[in-house]
Amino acid sequence: MNRTIAVSTSEFLISARNRWVTISIVMMALFALVLSAAGSAPTGDLGADKLSITVASLTSLAVYLVPLVALLMSFDAVAGEIERGTLALALAYPVSRSEILAGKLLAHLGILGLAIFVGYSIAAFAAFALDDEAATGLPALVRLFWTSLLLGAVFLGIGYAVSAITRRPGSAAGVAIALWLVLIVLYDIGLLAAVVADSGGTFTQSVFPWLLVANPADAFRLYNLSASEATAAAGGIAGAANAIPPYLALASLVIWPVAAFTLAAAAFRRVTL
């Protein structure tokens, strides 16, 4: 554990020097500000407090941004060390490869957590400024925060795995972006197309919900929306959210980070120099 903390301290320092801490915080803050500004318009008769509506908007934002930031922070983790020539020395030290990876995860998750916290806080302040009833939405915001961390952990793990498998930063970056595009953007479009073509048949009834839960980003969206008061404000796949019990989506969100990290550790163990 001490060694994991040593790795994570060093990684945090490196990320701070590389401006990654600043970049991710500014990115999250900026998006939160834009969302708050857009959401400040009168929402009509949704019957929800301002913060719950903000949480719904933040969910749609986080589902794109959190995986992206996580992949950007993690794709270099193993490949970069190989390229810089720093890995051989680290592996000669009495520290296991899982400890090294866990240290990096801890640091990157910390930075991600900081960025998310700043971003969501800004959005929350804006909501409180506009609505006295905003406190009703606080549990939803807290839930959004820790599920965002789980989502981030999934994509950090995927990023490490990609980094260890490709072993070159250039390829790792390419694969990471491709994965983001497939898992976050194309997956949903594909499902949507299938549902439209199926027009309420067996696929939509029995396969589609499971495919949604299987994708960590969709599971994240489902869990937050199904538990939220403002499902109606979110639109999109919100209808599907009702068909799936929230605990399944949560289970997916818990299993995915463990699976991704296990995959990354296995890939890292296979790296020879």
Binding site: I14, R17, N18, G85
Partner: peptide, 13 residues
Amino acid sequence: SYLPENVAFHPSL
């Protein structure tokens, strides 16, 4: 202990 050939460290530290 080990000293690699052309030892490298992270330039930011």
